[in-house]
Write a protein that binds this DNA or RNA. Structure first.
Lengths: 405, 405
DNA sequence: ACACTTTTTTTCGAGCAGCGAAATTAATGC
DNA sequence: GCATTAATTTCGCTGCTCGAAAAAAAGTGT
């Protein structure tokens, strides 16, 4: 049982990882800047960048003529990622849409395929085949990039297995418990990573706002589901490093409203789009939830609530209360300094905010430590995609490229 | 911004830490065994142990004549901690008792002072003075050990500040918001660590049962308070690495029973000793909680419930329900494979078990992943003390002694 | 033009890690 | 006494980082 022995090899890996990480976060920079960013000496930076350039992982960038920022002294030559050295295929599987994107090692989108989903899709086509078909198509359309494909990563909703990368349950019909990760990995002879969407939200929040990258943040997605990702002082947290919570299915009221998951009283059953509509239309709480809510119908309900419609206002208050109590209960275990609300529900944040804050105010932690900052991010600029891409590229950096050739 | 640079110094620190950690966990052993336990080569073990012996941190143990386990070949000389190289003072502050223990670097108890506490104690004596008096007394009684005192560590209940080691709130009267950590540290010129008791429970659980040291465990203390510590795959978790949860004050029922903390509906208000007695005696939920419950009264209630008394049974059912819903809600954020119940309430576990399991069964996570193992540890053999001591000694290992002289 | 200044980058030599292989040490067995 | 066995140390080697000095590549000034 040998673990964590440190030797000169692990030193190099660590420091190469530091260099790649700095480039990933801050973009191309000079060797001098790298020394400052990593804390390594100039001598070491020279050695490490030399190695990485020989291995074609990074390249010296051509000096772009920017006569404005020129001073005395030898001009810096920036180094940046060699975009051609690798690519990754990123699947985002949502309830009503699947999307696969091919990105290069520099984080530039190469190509993308989008497909609408229905609840029948994965009953009619095996998930493995559905995904493999699209991946094959993408590879055929981009042979150059496909030849250096390094990773497949998948974003999905649901509950992952504690130990292996497989899906135990999902709100997406007929996809859970099919071994698509293993099958894809075997078919394409590539590592396939599976991430819970909520976890990627947390990852994405870091890249959205640099101020949050060291903070403790809970990112709550409100829309057709309710999900959450957490970071503590910049590190992904929740159900372990694999980072996943089932916030949407935390119990709000025992024996309460029926949720899509089949349980009763989940937060999602009150706070998701279908929950809000059900409350607003006074549909019995035990009625089977609608399989999908058209975005415009949810938007319309927000508009009516903002116009003062009583039923609509009440529905959003109920939603806010569910979210607020959930957050308050979560805070007994983990108390973030910031809470972000993202997704379609962020548009309705002002309708839920007072209930959320009231529920938080009733918790001991908030009473003692004060309320966290609760803000909505409407313009989300695709935090899930960004999180999925950055996580995957960073993983290539640290796992594949930080190790010596 | 330079961080985490790896150089030969950090390599040595890491590997010295590995050696000390192996000795801490497995006790004295031969150099060959150390090589196997750490994964380092024999040559490195020789170098590292030589250094540590020169610095008097570890010593070659005299060969205890054990003719039974002798074989051929050169006999192994075991190395073990030099018990005289350092000592630590450990405070355990509970609602009705304070205890300070002096332990040596080998983990052997040297001396101990116990003092009963009342709700007035810290109103009459400043906390700093109370603690300093006892520490001074302990030092005077043990001058030899006191001369190598390295650390003071304190176990306490309540809510710690997010950033600095101070107490924001505590069920122990008149102790919160007094700067005793800083003052003690200044007066004795020593590092003073402050730990939440729940966190030490989690630490202690590791040392109680080696099988749990790599598992994901929630350790729930049930007694005059309700507290919880968590580990994920062997690592302490919850409100960050500082490891603390406020499980007892997670809301169970909005606007529910009055808790000692002043909030309403906390789990503690139903599941702690005073909560159980209040339910059993049909005292109104809004009545001010008793400041302290004599152990025998709680024991008596357990006996009555076990004898079939309806009111008593009902009270423990209510307590179990509160704990069960709380655990179920926690599992949306963090789902352990094992749940341990410790403390006086472990004696009543069988009275609460069915309600706990029923509540857990109603959660999506358990529905999908199965129920965690829920067991009670009656014979707790002082997990808090053990956790406090091991955490503190390990901290000395890694912080003070792993660094090169 | 040509020497000087400034800034970036590389080179060089020293110091310290850990490692594998070989040597040494200290017992037992015959 | 000598072979055997097992624990430990010694030796020679490689790899890493570092600080200091040198080299490179510009702009500046006369």
């Amino acid at each position: 049982m040998a673990r964590n022995v440190s030797d000169s090899d692990s030193v190099r890996r660590q420091n190469r990882g530091l260099v790649l990480g700095a480039l990933r976060v801050q973009g191309p920079m000079s060797r001098t800047a790298l020394a400052a960013a990593t804390g390594l000496s100039h001598a070491s930076i020279t050695a490490i960048t030399h190695d990485l350039i020989v291995q074609q992982i990074i390249v010296d960038l051509e000096p772009t003529e920017r006569p404005d920022a020129r001073g005395r002294g030898r001009p810096a030559t920036l180094v940046g990622f060699n975009r051609r050295v690798g690519t990754a295929a990123l699947f985002e599987i949502d309830v009503n849409r699947a999307r696969i994107s091919l990105v290069d090692y520099g984080g530039v989108l190469v190509d993308r395929i989008e497909t609408p989903l229905t609840p029948r899709t994965f009953a009619e086509t095996r998930p493995t085949q559905f995904l493999a078909d699209r991946l094959r198509q993408l590879k055929e359309r981009n042979p150059a990039e496909a030849s250096v494909l390094q990773r497949v990563a998948i974003s999905i909703q649901g509950i992952l297995d504690r130990d292996e990368p497989s899906l135990r349950w999902s709100p997406i019909s007929h996809i859970a418990d099919t071994p698509f990760v293993a099958e894809l990995s075997a078919e394409f002879a590539l590592p396939v990573a599976l991430y819970k969407r909520g976890r990627l939200l947390a990852e994405g929040a870091r890249w959205l706002d640099p101020a949050l990258s060291d903070a403790s943040v809970a990112t709550v997605f409100v829309g057709s589901t309710v999900a959450m990702g957490m970071t503590f002082r910049g590190k992904i947290l929740g159900r372990g490093e694999e980072g996943a919570t089932e916030f949407g299915h935390m119990n709000h009221l025992p024996n309460g409203a029926l949720c899509r998951c089949g349980m009763r009283g989940c937060i999602e059953a009150y706070a998701s789009d279908y929950g809000v509509l059900r409350t607003a239309y006074s549909v019995p709480e035990t009625a089977t939830p609608a399989p999908a809510v058209p975005p415009q119908e949810y938007e319309g309900m927000i508009a009516r609530a903002e116009a003062g419609n009583r039923a609509a206002t009440h529905a959003f208050n109920t939603a806010g209360r569910a979210i607020g109590f959930g957050l308050g209960r979560m805070m007994a275990v983990f108390d973030p300094s910031h809470i972000l609300v993202v997704g379609p529900g962020a548009r309705a944040f002002s309708l839920m905010k007072s209930e959320i804050l009231a529920a938080l105010a009733g918790t001991l932690i908030c009473h003692v430590n004060g309320l966290p900052q609760v803000v909505a991010y409407r313009d989300e600029r695709e935090p899930v995609f960004k999180g999925l891409m950055m996580k995957t590229l960073n993983d290539i950096d640290q796992t594949d490229f930080a190790a010596r050739a």
